[in-house]
């Protein structure tokens, strides 16, 4: 098996759009299944009454991480061909903070707002228009932000490289952290119900 299939030229650009649509369906399906079409359920995370955001996100991350790891180790997937967004630490930290505040104000994130729109949420539609507005503002001020946007460039950097420890060990530590987090989340939820 030579994966990623697209990078090995097994199919072309046009078919990749069909793949995109199908993968999108899967993505949207599970987001809705998890209850992420509901702003109240999403924001409950930040009031400790429903920790689903954390549970779903980290189960997904851990699943994909373990899958990538074993496919890579077994030589079935060429991990160096998987696109890695370069790290620009400071803009990403500031962007993350703005996005987090926007999350609790708006009630959704861009992906979850799509499934909320599909299930009839008016606030999600307004939220999405807001997202496009925010991107518009970013685009307009981009010339001013450009220097900052490209600052603290660390290139393609993974946690194992940063801490200089084996990849597999990081995988284990993330698993450990996630399971610890899940146990904590269950405990907090139970406590808040009382």
């Amino acid at each position: 098996m030579n994966a990623p299939f697209f990078k090995y030229g097994y199919f072309g650009d046009d078919l990749s759009l069909v793949v995109a649509f199908i993968i999108g369906i899967g993505f949207g399906f599970f987001l809705e299944r998890a209850g992420f079409g509901s702003a109240k359920k999403l924001t409950a995370q930040f009031y400790f009454t429903d920790m689903s955001v954390f549970k779903v996100m980290f189960s997904a991350i851990v699943t994909a991480m373990i899958g990538l790891y074993y496919l890579g180790v077994l030589g079935l997937l060429n991990l160096s061909l998987v696109y890695l967004t370069p790290t620009y630490l400071i803009p990403q930290i500031i962007g993350g903070l703005i996005l987090g505040i926007g999350f609790v104000i708006g009630g959704y994130c861009p992906g979850t707002s799509c499934v909320a729109v599909s299930t009839g949420k008016i606030d999600a539609l307004v939220f999405l228009i807001g997202v496009i507005g925010g991107i518009f503002v970013f685009g307009e001020v981009f010339p001013l932000l450009k220097v900052f946007y490209y600052s603290s460039n660390m290139g393609n950097l993974t946690l194992p490289q940063l801490f200089n420890i084996p990849y597999g060990l990081v995988v284990f530590l993330v698993v450990l952290m996630a399971i610890g987090g899940f146990m904590g989340a269950e405990y907090v939820e139970k406590k808040m119900k009382k």
């Binding site: 994130c109 861009p110 997202v131």
Partner: peptide, 8 residues
């Protein structure tokens, strides 16, 4: 919130 999300 949406606008902040988009910008961030």
């Amino acid at each position: 919130g949406g606008a902040m999300m988009g910008f961030g």
